[in-house]
Design a binder for these strands. Sequence first.
RNA 1: GCGCCCGUAGCUCAGUCGGAUAGAGCGUUCGCCUCCGGAGCGAAAGGUCACAGGUUCGAAUCCUGUCGGGCGCACCA
Length: 618
Amino acid sequence: MDDVVIALQRAVEAAATAVGAPGTNVQVQEVPDGRPGDYGTPVAFALAKALGKNPAAIAAEVVAALSLPAGVAEARAVGPYINFNVEPAGFVRQVALEPRRPSAARLKVVVEHTSVNPNKEAHVGHLRNTVLGDASARILAAVGHAVEVQNYIDDTGRQAAESIFAVTYFNARYAPETDRKYDHWLGELYVRLSAAKERDGEAIERGVNEVMHRLERGELRREVERVLKAQLETYNSLGVEYDLLVWESDIVQGGLLRRGLDVMEKSPHVSLPDSGKFAGALVMDVSEFLPGLEEPLVVLVRSDGNAMYVAKDIGYQFWKAGLFEGLTFERFAQQPSGRPLYTSSQHGELHPDGRSFAHADEIINVIDVRQSHPQTIVRTALALSGTPEGLHAFENSHHLAYEVVTLEGQAMSGRRGITLSIDEVAEEATRRARAVVEEKNPGLADIDQVARQVGIGALRFGMLKGEAKKVIDFRWEQALSLQGDSAPYVQYAHARACSILRAAAAAGIDQPTAQAAADFAALGQLEVRLARVVRRFPEVVEAAAAALAPHQVAQYALDLATAWNGYYNHKGEDGRPDTQVMRAEPGLREARLLLVDRVRATLAAALELLGIGAPEQM
RNA sequence: GCGCCCGUAGCUCAGUCGGAUAGAGCGUUCGCCUCCGGAGCGAAAGGUCACAGGUUCGAAUCCUGUCGGGCGCACCA
């Protein structure tokens, strides 16, 4: 059987043709609570204009001309609206047993996220990036894309150099047993070095510069890897995994920078002025694509011969789009789920384990909104390259910009000590969740795991439930809340459904048994309302993927949990519960059970897309 | 100065393509476990959707302007 909404759309279109308005675009939407009907359409408004009659009259006419599709019980004009009631039996049955899937896309999508400087522990601002990127990758994969997650390692930057130099400068030695986690330990040295610049600036400058040169030659890879591994531990503990680490030093040594510049140098927009402000530097004129800029010239290579970050990124983006090769890879680690993590490497191979990287149809860069300007310039370079591939990459690359996370209204700053690490927050979140689980459910077997799922879930959800372009001011009570608009609210709804299904299993009712015995005709309006929300899931996922907006999935999860909780607690006119599942009479019981099972699976799927666990008990 | 983003309940936020009475959570007040999990549910109170014009049968949503706030405009990244 066709999906009801699609069938209704077609039926109304046919009726519109019959009353003299062929080709009308019909939208069918859920009827707001308190109005008659399950689905409805405002199409009469549009027809009124075309046909020169009033909308209510048209609505009546269309109703008369309608031939109702299977599964729809009734159509009626409600003022200018045309509303429909579905047949509960068929509708709920379809929702429960024949879940729709998102339409299958099949593009290669490269998502770059995290990309934290490997010189200190990651903070909650990075958490937002990572969680947003991770959820986006999951959602894109859910609609059928082949997603590759890359994490860019800026190992040749000043920040990495300062941290590494700090170790020798302070003659520090890391003691794994007694010292803090390595990235925290190193981060502290980094801050100390910044402070020491006041009295010993010149020597530190010399030392840092020397380290930078060694980094560029890839000589200090082990040192960088050590911090990186500590950072990855943090992300893995949040349920975040990657496919590939791309090192900036490899981009340079592997020739991506050179090849990118070769392409750019052929562009008529790129020049090497021999006089003026930019004498001796390689500059790109972006005015054609970015008009109105005060300074339309962007430096790619400085007059001293050093490439700007933008130039390296251009090479990297070209490579992502498949304009050229240049990187080789090797296996780096096995991640908790078993998914292998690869890394770029000077002595790797092009196709390790038969894998192939980059060659993206679509490129998504998760990076904070303050980088919008340089991101735009990098993207513009793709267009200015003058190559068809570059133009294609330009059209298919997106900057997923998100606003910053502030701490009590203040911008985070490691140097000023205004910062909050992910590890610290995650630990506290888990601790709080554990206290609640112990109180509510003392005998729970895997309490540690559940506390993690709930605590980390709350944290992730807090980062994802709103739009990316809104600033998040981090506050403990809000970020770690276990009630209200939160992950635990959704998880609780899920656990509640699981509990009913456990009772069913104990009574010997499994899926096939339930399907054989279910009497969907016994269902009513309450089930239709719940099923209506369930039905929406695939379109929500599609929309979230198209808009790169994981918050739409988060909001949906809340909607579904609310609908389910409302159903669960519903009382009839006599004040007694009238939606019980296991205490309902046979037939009705099984039909409700199947719907509850679908609710459970949908809640779990929505949480999964957000990277949040769905414990069966909590 | 130029550019981008934001402004919806006391606070934090939802609100695809313009559609029905603008919805949640937190906080406040009241009610609900002799009923499958009360981390829940129901109800009350709380709104000139920043402001002013415009388009439209219809605007929180689209357009223009104004006012507030944030961010960005390096031979840094």
